[in-house]
Structure formats: structure tokens, C-alpha cells
Design a protein around this nucleic acid. Structure first.
Lengths: 208, 208
DNA sequence: TAGATTGTTAATCGATTAACAATC
DNA sequence: TAGATTGTTAATCGATTAACAATC
């Protein structure tokens, strides 16, 4: 129903609207800030049930509510983080989670040095407690922040314990059964984009 | 010349091939691992100058070389990181940078507590040294890892000192002059995708 | 009311897929 | 040579853009 490209843009609108203080915004204003033609914004928003008001614009609060419903943000979800290195710790302290109705209920590591220490309010636990925490808190999402060598192993462990979705920050392609959702957050790809943009720019400069 | 979608997939091929140990791979094998139809893989690769060999496949090394050239990975680039929190530290220690011919030559923070401490091999410096480091090492890329409240301020400072590209990890839309490249690495968007996938799945389950 | 802004239809553009010819 | 795999053309599909009607 929603075109793939539209969904991607709806995510941008969501973030923009989250930071918006005005009561109404026009497609013109949204497009301006995100570098998207206003016609495109209107087309995208027309897929939603909420309709804007001619001459007034879109009611920020109502629009946000519908986007929250669409993306499932209205439902609370419990999360655990595997790997208490810099990246795992960064995510554990990430202030944005609360806005998305996500609660981090545990952080794990296999390094004896780290176990028992604290990251924010959470005590780093041994992987031996993984099963218990998942069952007890009804955890649905596992975040993998371990080196890529152990990513698959951790993924298997999460799947075995009934995790529904995996957010994988290790730069490797992990294999999971079809019914488990995997989202790869690969920083390397961002790097390629950046290097490519620099490259394009410098070769354009040479031509001129 | 390259369709946008093709470029995105070429990045995936790049990573896959970097991990490939065989001498030749077929479009079938690449497609299999990335869940992309082999016709699509061939079409994408046909935009490159390097041609595969019928019956044999694509020569991994040659293909990687051409992709490296395309993305600018064959050129070394110097990078600084602003913000030595968990995320900045994670990036400073990120093992992938070396593969991309990127060298981190400095990490900065404004917190007096952190200045002078080490992150990997780097000593955390005061922002007062920013200009000197950029000039001395000919730094082209700045990575923003500060809280979103100070992201714009840091961006302005980087621009003022002649940085060509900014990799922004703060979840906010920063404004820079047209000639400066910005890449937003927004973890929030990944979260939205994940929540949406969970939501779609659970509503499908209800229907069945 | 007049004017601004949304919503929608049709036309254009671009990307994917299918089929098959080329080739090692 | 026969067969496997690439490369390319044409057909299909989907997304964007343009134009304008609807509406507050």
C-alpha cells in the first residue's frame, strides 16, 4: 500500500515533526527543510488517513499520532543490548530511545572485567542471564554490538531464546530464520557514501 | 550515469566482495547472499567498466579495485572526531576505518575532565586545537558526535576551518553552505524501520 | 468572497524484470 | 563442442512530477 520510498520519507517527516513547535505546518515548510518538493510531501501524506486542511496545513499533533501508530511507536517494546563496548554503551545511554517507547532492560557482555560494572542505570550482566531476562521482561528486540566475529553466535543465541527482531551493528551479514526480523545498521555503508560524495565533488572540480 | 538505486547496491557488493575469499564470484552467488535477483546484480555491474567473464563470473579483485576507485577509497583521507563520548570513542576505535583508507588524526571534546585522556592511540584535545590540527594534517572530514544541542555550533566551527565534509551522528538537521557535504547518520531512522517491521508483522499475525 | 493550501488525476520519468543473444 | 554465465534490449512496473480541481 505505501510505496517504499514514501515510507522512507514518512520517517523523515516524523522526526521533523517531533521537533516542530508550531501547531500547523504546510507541505511547503516540510519540503523546504528536508529538500523535498512540496508536491511530493503532499502525495506522501495523502497515503495516510489524516487529512490536512486547505489554507491551514497539517496539524502537527494529529499527524504525529498517526505516524506513531503506523510505525508502531504507540506500543512499548523491551530491548536488550549484547556487547558493552563503546557502541553498546553509547546506545544504552542514547537519549532518543524514550521517545520511541523503547525500554532497555538489560545489557550483556562476556568479558569478566566488565560484568558487574554499570552503564547508566544498568548493571552489565553475564550472558548466562540472557534467557532469564528475556523471559522475565518479555524482551522482543536484541541489539548486537559485539565484534563481527561473534555476531552470528550471539544472533543464534538470541533466536534460540525467542527474540523477535535483531538490530545488528556488527558489520557482517548474519543469518536468521525467516520469522526473525533483522535490521543491519552498517556504518561502513555510510562511509562509502561519504567517500563517494567527496570523490564525485573532486572529479567535478577537475573538469571545471 | 549510475542510477541511485544501483549505487546503493554497489555499496553492498563492495562489502560482500571485501569478505570474499574466492577468486571469482557469479551474479547468482552475490544475489543469493544479498537477496537481490541475479539479473539485477548483472545489470548493476554492467554500469562499471570492468566486465565479467561468461561461464566464470566476476574477478573479485578487479571488481573491488574498480569499486574502490568509484567510491574514492583509493584516496587516503584524514578525519577528526568532535565529541569523545561513547559514540565518538566507538568510532575512534572502529576497526573498519583502515579498510576505507581513512585515518583519524584527532579527537576533540570541550569537557575539561576528558581532555588529556586517551582514546585508543589518540589523546583527547581541547577544541582550541581544532584549527591547528585541521591545517597541519589537511583534514577533509569532520565527524560530529556531540549532543544535538551543540551540533550546529560544532558544524559552524568545522565549516569555518575549511572542512569539506561532515559526518553527523547527532539526531538533528544541521545547516551548512552548499559546498560542504553533509551525511546524516541517524540512528533514530533505523529505529523507526525496526518498529515498523515489528508492527507490520504483528498486524499480519492478527489477520491470519 | 478571494486566496492559499490540500488532494488527486494524468503524464513523465526511471528502475526493475524478463527474455535472449553473446561469449568464453 | 556444449553449457554456463555474462551483457543487453525491450517490456513492465512503480515512483515522481506537473497541472489543476477541491475546499476551507
Amino acid at each position: 500500500m505505501f510505496p517504499k520510498a514514501t515510507l522512507e520519507r514518512l520517517k523523515l517527516y516524523h522526526r521533523l515533526l517531533s521537533e516542530e513547535s508550531k501547531e500547523y505546518v504546510s507541505s511547503e515548510e516540510i519540503g523546504e527543510k528536508l529538500n523535498i518538493p512540496p508536491e511530493q510531501v503532499r502525495k506522501d501524506l495523502s497515503y495516510l488517513e489524516y487529512k490536512g486542511k486547505p489554507k491551514v496545513g497539517y496539524h502537527v499533533k494529529s499527524l504525529l499520532e498517526e505516524l506513531n501508530r503506523l510505525f508502531g511507536i504507540d506500543k512499548k517494546v523491551k530491548v536488550i543490548i549484547i556487547g558493552a563496548g563503546n557502541l553498546g554503551s553509547a546506545l544504552a545511554n542514547y537519549p532518543g530511545f524514550a521517545n520511541y517507547n523503547i525500554e532497555i532492560v538489560g545489557i550483556f557482555d562476556k568479558d569478566q572485567e566488565k560484568i558487574g560494572k554499570k552503564v547508566g542505570d544498568l548493571v552489565i550482566l553475564s550472558l548466562d542471564f540472557l534467557e532469564r531476562v528475556i523471559k522475565r521482561f518479555n524482551v522482543e528486540i536484541g541489539v548486537i554490538c559485539v565484534p563481527k566475529e561473534s555476531a552470528q553466535e550471539v544472533a543464534d543465541l538470541l533466536v534460540k531464546n525467542g527474540i523477535k527482531a535483531i538490530w545488528n551493528f556488527a558489520p557482517t551479514f548474519i543469518k536468521v530464520p525467516n520469522e526473525v526480523i533483522v535490521r543491519n545498521e552498517d556504518i561502513s555503508l555510510g562511509l562509502l557514501t561519504l567517500k563517494h560524495m567527496l570523490e564525485v565533488k573532486s572529479s567535478q572540480a577537475k573538469e571545471a
